[in-house]
Each structure stands twice: as C-alpha cells, then as structure tokens.
Amino acid sequence: MSNITAYKCKSCGLIMYPYHDRCLNCKKREFEEIEPSNNGKLLTFTIIEQLPWGMDERGRILGVVEFDNGVKALGLIDVEQPKLEMKLKRGWGTVREIGGVKVKGLIFEKA
C-alpha cells in the first residue's frame, strides 16, 4: 500500500475519507474505493512545536490537503515555508514510529 483509500458514495457521489459505514450525506452503504489524485492544494496547516511523547522533534508541519479529485486528508507537509492554497504533490512514507513500528502515511511535497 502506498496511498490511502477514500470512498465515493455510489448513490449520491459524496467523497469521504476516512471510512464511514454509511454515507454522511444519504446514509447509503455502497461505496466505490478511490485513490486521491497525485496533486492537491493546502487548505490549512500548523507547525507543531510540542509533539506527544515519543516524538522528540520540533517544527513538524501538518496540514489538510484537498486533492484535485475532491478527497480531503490530513498529512505531513514536507515544505519549508507552507502557504495556504499552495499546490502540493502526494507522497508516502514513514510518518511516526509507534511502539517500535514504523507507521506509514501521506507526506506532501511542493508540486
């Protein structure tokens, strides 16, 4: 796996991420699995200076990205000076080590 899976409601077309058992809009239960497109724009972000226990780093940037195909997701923003509405491209890699296990997730870079 090198990407997240998002869901498109087969009934009303609503795009959702993460998974819901029923569509947030029409409550139907059938979805088409979709992948976010390669590019998107940065909707908002923060630079975290105080991370939880086990993450001995500073200045981690997290942001919400809206992909060109409408999927919205949080991810790690690997950009020196992020700006709202900035174009980003999707990547994938280790985002955190939890209990010795490397956990992978979205990492965005400048498009």
Binding site: Y17, I48, V95
Partner: peptide, 10 residues
C-alpha cells in the same frame, strides 16, 4: 486513529 493520530496530530 489512522487519519490523524499517526501523524502526531495533537
């Protein structure tokens, strides 16, 4: 758990 926490979101 997997859409937010893993990124270190607080």
């Amino acid at each position: 758990p997997h859409a937010e926490y893993i990124y270190g979101l607080t």
